[in-house]
Computed example of a mutant assay.
Amino acid sequence: MAGEKNRIITIANQKGGVGKTTTAINLATALAAIGERVLIVDLDPQGNASTGLGIERKERRYSSYDVLVGSHRIEDAVLHTAVPNLSIVPSTLDLLGLEMEISQHADRVFRLKKALQADDAQEYTYILIDCPPSFNLLTMNAMAAAHSVLVPLQCEFFALEGLSQLLETINQVRHSVNPTLDIQGIVLTMFDSRNNLAQQVVSDVRTHLGEKVYSTLIPRNVRVSEAPSYGKPAILYDLKCAGSQAYLQLASEVIQRERQRRAA
């Protein structure tokens, strides 16, 4: 595990379309806005976190793929974003072939962990890892490297069913490769206060998981949805919109939980 100089948080959900990458981008931006030095590691071959932060594909000379195959260090792949204090290790479609390339290597699950133990990764106070919407070698690398997992959960009918599968996956990782892996928290996304089902999902998740669920609800918000097409986090695109304000609140909760953890 990387030293206590930084906190490595994997943002994961095996289901797509839950606001995972949106959460990674905007939480990272909010943390950077309050003075934290933040790095996003984009482990999704689609590269949406990279695109959403305005990183053109032609700029991605080196990527998380190069880091995982061991041909380059983290510092070689890091690109600065338009957000002060926020950098990213971008992804490329090369990641699609990673499993075939390193599946026979004994350290295949620990490639990212080793990379993040390097001195050049210690300058960041928070490292957020954006995972693909599946449980594969990329997600295993992310969970093996992380101190904790942050789970975005869409306010929809099958939310709890998908969550139980993810919690079981986290338990498996804890028993096999990372015994100290914790759940940083569960953030409810795409919340529509006019929808009775969404209200019921919030109630059910809080009943089942209690304090693990953040107080902040991320609302459905047009401005948040528009922002990636402009290569900007919502917080830069429209700071005053409800979605941006919610992510700022979420960042405060994340930091508060980290303070409580250190004090314990």
Rank of each mutant, 00 (worst) to 15 (best):
Tyr62Val: 06
His208Met: 11
Met190Lys: 10
Asn85Val: 06
Lys20Phe: 08
Pro219Lys: 07
Phe157Ser: 07
Ala28Phe: 11
Val89Ala: 06
Ala32Asp: 12
Ser252Arg: 00
Ser225Glu: 13
Lys114Asp: 15
Ala146Phe: 13
Gln165Lys: 15
Arg73Phe: 10
Leu86Ala: 01
Ala106His: 03
Phe191Val: 15
Lys240Cys: 05
Ser225Met: 14
Gly97Thr: 06
Arg259Asp: 04
Lys5Asn: 02
Ile74Gln: 03
Asn196Leu: 14
Ser50Asn: 05
His147Glu: 06
Thr21Cys: 02
Gln172Met: 14
Thr21Ala: 06
Ser164Trp: 09
Val254Arg: 02
Ala251Val: 01
Gln199Ala: 09
His208Ser: 09
Leu153Asn: 03
Val67Gln: 04
Pro219Glu: 05
Asp204Leu: 01
Thr207Tyr: 07
Lys212Gly: 01
Ile8Gly: 02
Met143Gly: 00
Leu166Asn: 11
Ile183Val: 14
Asn136Met: 09
Ser71Arg: 08
Tyr124Gln: 07
Arg61Val: 14
Val213Trp: 08
Leu39Gln: 05
Val41Met: 08
Met1Thr: 09
Asn48Gln: 01
Ala118Leu: 13
Leu166Thr: 02
Pro179His: 13
Leu181Pro: 14
Phe110His: 10
Gly243Ser: 03
Arg220Tyr: 01
Gln184Ile: 03
Thr23Asp: 03
Ala145Thr: 15
Tyr237Ser: 03
Gln256Gly: 03
Met1Asn: 05
Arg61Pro: 00
Asn136His: 09
Thr189Tyr: 02
Thr29Asn: 12
Asn13Lys: 12
Val202Cys: 09
Leu98Asp: 11
Arg220Lys: 14
Ser176His: 13
Val18Arg: 00
Leu181His: 14
Gly17Leu: 00
Ala77His: 13
Thr29Ile: 09
Asn196Met: 03
Lys232Glu: 15
Ser252Gly: 11
Met100Pro: 00
Asp204His: 00
Leu166Met: 15
Thr189Lys: 09
Ser252Thr: 02
Ile186Met: 14
Ser215Thr: 12
Glu4Ile: 07
Tyr247Gln: 09
Leu181Cys: 13
Lys58Gly: 06
Leu160Pro: 06
Ser64Tyr: 00
Ile9Glu: 03
Ile55Leu: 04
Ile74Pro: 05
Pro179Cys: 04
Ala142Leu: 05
Lys15Ala: 00
Val18Asp: 01
Ala82His: 14
Lys20Leu: 05
Phe135Pro: 01
Ile25Asn: 05
Leu95Met: 03
Leu236Asn: 15
Leu137Phe: 08
Val151Ser: 00
His80Gln: 13
Thr207His: 07
Gln104Lys: 10
Ser50Ile: 00
Tyr214Phe: 15
Leu239Trp: 10
Ala106Gln: 12
Lys58His: 09
Glu161Pro: 08
